[in-house]
Amino acid sequence: MNQTVKHLVDPNDFTVEEINQVIDLGLKIHSNPAQYARLCEGKILGPLFYEPSTRTRLSFESAMLRLGGQVLGFSDANTSAVKKGESLADTVRVLDDYCDALVMRHPMEGAPKLASEYSTVPVINGGDGGHQHPTQTLTDLISIKYYKGHISNLKIAICGDLLFGRTVHSLLKTLSRFENITFYLISPPELKIPKHLKDYLLDTYDVSISEFTDLEDCIEEADILYMTRIQKERFLNEEEYMRLKDSYILTRDKLSEAKSDLMVLHPLPRVNEIHYDVDRDPRAKYFEQAAFGVYVRMALISILLEVADHA
């Protein structure tokens, strides 16, 4: 393993200071993107997507193109040597010569960490199974910083699939390191956060966690409401998915109980967990959040490629 290369495969790979650095640079890029348009000229980003993705892959590609760099990778493992049975380690050991950084999405949990052990260039986790999705968290945090002005002293309600939701796991693991954070976790009993994660958070950080099955029980307290999709692809049993898929549907009616400065976030894609009528509510920020994903990934790429100071 090359110890000197900086990777982002787990939220804890970055200190709070480093996370703030990425977010602050992302906000600077957002306010003046032209200044950063040639920062990655001559550099190549390699998206290795073993699982379907729209926002993560395209926002990374957009980010690299907006930095003046290029992209070279695959979005379907069936079109790569993986189809012939090539191991992940072998793929990475070849592609790290072709690219300056790799972004990986993989259905197996821990795959990006394995890749980072063999790569000589930075590896970014673009989502591994139901485990982690640290760059979605950066997207969430830059949105919070932009609209709230700070990432501390917040009451955050997270609703939906907390068991398999990798965006939720990364968000919890990251926000727990910020000051005075209270979590309200709303899910059906079958989709509560993994016990090992809850124990880890409570044992490691000074954080408050309360669990609910009804959104109405805590919505009025929340500063941020983070909705998530019940993910069909994570269920082994279709019947179980059908039973749980409509557990939570956020409507404008339900928002009437919430604070006037609540932020409604969602990592997207949504199915029906946020009714379309909520889109018109000024508290709905999920499309702006998706847009911030590009700027924060521009910042992340610049920092990992050590060109951030060249702007």
């Binding site: 191991s87 992940l88 197996m108 949990e109 821990g110 795959a111 394995l114 139901g130």
Partner: peptide, 10 residues
């Protein structure tokens, strides 16, 4: 679902 269950390198 852990990568160690499917990859000999892990």
């Amino acid at each position: 679902r852990c990568v160690t269950s499917v990859d000999d390198y892990a």
